[in-house]
Lab assay of single mutants.
Amino acid sequence: MDTYKLILNGKTLKGETTTEAVDAATAEKVFKHAANEHGVHGHWTYDPETKTFTVTE
């Protein structure tokens, strides 16, 4: 398992979190669910070198 990071750049919610996942696709599902639960919808990017997802509203 690897550690993946999410950076939230929402209009009303900003922050960072991490998750352990077997691959980037699994981490993305976890992060998108969490972002949706917090009402953050926007443009997603992924940097494979740093294993970091970013969502920007």
Rank of each mutant, 00 (worst) to 15 (best):
Val55Ile: 08
Leu13Gly: 08
Thr50Arg: 06
Val40Phe: 11
Thr45Ser: 13
Glu16Ser: 11
His41Glu: 11
Pro48Tyr: 06
Asp47Pro: 00
Val55Ala: 03
Glu20His: 09
Val22Ile: 13
Gly10Leu: 15
Asn9Arg: 09
Glu37Lys: 12
Val55Asp: 00
His43Asn: 12
Thr17Asp: 06
Phe53Asp: 00
Thr56His: 07
Ala27Trp: 01
Glu57Leu: 06
Thr54Ser: 05
Lys32Asp: 02
Asp2Thr: 13
His43Ser: 12
Glu16Asn: 06
Ala27Glu: 00
Glu16Gly: 06
Lys29Asp: 07
Asp2Ser: 13
Thr18Met: 09
His43Leu: 14
His38Ile: 15
Glu20Arg: 12
His33Thr: 12
Asn9Ile: 15
Glu20Thr: 13
Gly39Lys: 06
Thr50Met: 06
Lys32Met: 10
Met1Ser: 09
Pro48Glu: 11
Val22Trp: 11
Met1Phe: 12
Ala24Gln: 09
Thr17Pro: 03
Thr19Glu: 03
Pro48Ala: 12
Asp23Ala: 03
Tyr46Lys: 00
Val55Ser: 01
Gly10Tyr: 07
Leu13Phe: 15
Thr54Asp: 03
Ala25Asp: 09
Lys11Thr: 13
Leu13Cys: 15
Ile7Lys: 05
Ala34Tyr: 15
Ile7Pro: 00
His38Arg: 14
Gly39Ser: 06
Leu13Ile: 15
Tyr46Phe: 08
His41Cys: 11
Ala21Gly: 02
Asn36Cys: 12
Glu20Ser: 10
Leu13Trp: 15
Val22Cys: 11
Met1Tyr: 13
Thr54Arg: 05
Thr12Ile: 11
Ala21Val: 04
Glu49Trp: 10
Pro48Trp: 07
Ile7Arg: 05
Trp44Ser: 00
Val55Met: 04
Thr3His: 07
Val22Glu: 12
Tyr4Leu: 03
Pro48Gly: 06
Val55Thr: 02
Thr56Ser: 08
Thr12Leu: 11
Lys11Ile: 15
His38Met: 15
Thr56Phe: 07
Glu20Gly: 04
Tyr46Thr: 00
His33Gly: 09
Val22Lys: 12
Ala34Val: 15
Gly15Cys: 15
Glu37Arg: 11
Phe53Arg: 00
Lys51Trp: 04
Ile7Thr: 04
Glu28Met: 12
Thr19Lys: 03
Glu37Pro: 02
Thr50Phe: 06
Thr50Gly: 05
Pro48Leu: 06
Thr18Ser: 11
Glu57Tyr: 05
Gly15Asn: 09
Ala35Arg: 01
Lys11Arg: 12
Ala27Cys: 00
Lys51Tyr: 07
Lys29Gly: 08
Gly42Asp: 01
Ala21Pro: 00
Ala35Ser: 04
His43Gln: 13
Lys51Phe: 08
Thr19Asp: 02
Lys14Trp: 12
Glu57Ala: 06
Thr26Asp: 09
Lys5Gln: 05
Glu28Lys: 09
Trp44Met: 05
Gly39Thr: 04
Glu37Thr: 11
Thr52Leu: 04
Lys5Leu: 08
Asp47Val: 06
His43Thr: 15
His33Glu: 14
Thr19Phe: 12
Leu8Asn: 01
Tyr4Gln: 03
Glu49Asn: 11
Asn9Thr: 06
Glu57Phe: 06
Met1Asn: 08
Glu20Cys: 13
Met1Gly: 08
Lys5Arg: 13
Thr26Lys: 05
Tyr4Ala: 02
Lys11His: 13
Leu13Val: 14
His33Ala: 15
Thr26Tyr: 07
Ala35Asp: 01
Phe53Met: 01
Val40Ile: 15
His41Ser: 12
Phe53Glu: 01
Val40Asp: 02
Thr54Cys: 07
Val30Gly: 04
Thr26Phe: 07
Ala27Phe: 01
Gly10Val: 09
Lys32Tyr: 06
Leu13Thr: 11
Thr18Glu: 08
Asp2Val: 11
Tyr4Ile: 02
Thr12Pro: 04
Thr12Lys: 12
Ala25Leu: 09
His41Gly: 07
Thr12Gln: 11
His41Arg: 12
Lys5Tyr: 14
Ala24Lys: 11
His33Gln: 15
Thr3Phe: 07
Thr18Cys: 12
Lys5Asn: 05
Glu16Phe: 14
Val55Pro: 00
Tyr46Asp: 00
Leu6Gly: 02
His38Ala: 15
Phe53Leu: 01
Gly10Lys: 04
Met1Leu: 13
Thr50Trp: 05
Lys14Tyr: 14
Tyr4Asp: 03
Ala34Asp: 05
Thr17Glu: 11
Ala25Tyr: 09
Lys14Ala: 07
Gly42Met: 03
Thr12Ala: 09
Lys11Pro: 10
Thr17Ile: 15
Thr3Trp: 10
Asp2Asn: 14
Thr45Pro: 00
Trp44Ile: 03
Asn9Lys: 10
Glu20Val: 14
Phe53Gln: 00
Lys14Ser: 10
Glu49Ile: 10
Thr19Tyr: 11
Thr18Val: 09
Thr17Arg: 12
Asp23Phe: 02
Gly42Ala: 03
Gly42Ser: 02
Asn9Gly: 04
Gly42Arg: 01
Ala34Trp: 15
Thr12Tyr: 14
